[in-house]
Computed example of a mutant assay.
Amino acid sequence: MSLNLSFTRHALQFKFDARTSRGAISEHVAYYLRAWDTDSPDVFGLGECAPLAGLSVDYRPDLEEKLQQVVQLVNSGKMAQHSASGYLQELELQDWPALYFALETALLNLQQGGGWQLHNNGFSRSEEGIPINGLIWMGDKKFMQEQIEQKLKAGYTCLKLKIGSLDFTTELELLQSIREVAPGNSLTVRVDANGAFTPQEAFKKLERLAKYDLHSIEQPIRQGQHEEMAQLCAYTPVPVALDEELIGVQGSTAKAALLDTIKPQYIILKPTLVGGMAASAEWIQLAENRSIGWWVTSALESNIGLNAISQFTAQYNVAMPQGLGTGQLYHNNIPSPLQIEHGALWFRPTT
Rank of each mutant, 00 (worst) to 15 (best):
S310L: 01
V43R: 14
E244F: 09
M79N: 01
A241V: 07
Q250H: 13
L306T: 06
Q111C: 05
G47R: 01
S26A: 06
L232K: 09
V181N: 11
Q322K: 12
Q219V: 10
S291A: 12
V191Q: 00
S76C: 14
L12A: 04
E92N: 14
R60E: 12
A11M: 12
S85Q: 07
L258T: 03
I25D: 03
A80Y: 13
N307I: 02
M138N: 07
G224L: 13
G325N: 06
P237K: 08
A84Y: 13
N109T: 03
K211L: 04
S2Q: 15
E207D: 09
P237G: 12
Q111L: 08
N185H: 13
P337M: 12
Q200I: 08
Y235Q: 15
Q250G: 01
S83N: 15
K66E: 12
A193R: 10
S2K: 15
T236V: 06
G129M: 00
G325L: 00
P97W: 08
D17E: 14
Q150S: 11
E27P: 02
A80T: 15
T253H: 12
A102F: 12
Q200F: 14
E341M: 15
V43F: 13
E207Y: 04
N109Y: 08
T253W: 13
F168A: 03
A11W: 05
R179T: 15
D140C: 04
D213P: 08
L258D: 02
W346G: 13
T326S: 02
E171T: 06
S85W: 03
A257W: 03
L273D: 08
L242N: 06
H10G: 09
Q94C: 00
Q81P: 02
L52M: 10
Q69L: 11
A319D: 06
G293S: 15
Q219T: 07
P183W: 14
G184C: 12
L108G: 03
Q68W: 00
G248W: 01
A98T: 06
V296L: 13
V191I: 00
Q328N: 13
S252R: 03
N194V: 08
R208H: 05
V249R: 10
H119C: 06
G45L: 04
L300A: 11
L242S: 05
L306C: 05
A319T: 08
Q117R: 14
Q72W: 09
G343E: 11
T297F: 04
Q72K: 14
M229C: 02
V70Y: 00
Y266D: 01
A18H: 13
Y32R: 10
T236C: 14
I130N: 00
A256H: 06
A210E: 03
L242T: 02
V71G: 08
Q322N: 12
M229H: 00
G248R: 03
N317A: 09
L172W: 07
L88S: 10
S280F: 06
Q81R: 14
C233W: 10
Q147N: 11
G86P: 04
L3T: 11
A50W: 01
S83L: 15
E64H: 10
Y31R: 07
D39H: 13
V238T: 11
H215D: 14
S85Y: 01
C49H: 07
E127P: 05
D140M: 13
L152Q: 07
K141G: 04
L269M: 07
A53N: 14
Q311W: 03
A287I: 11
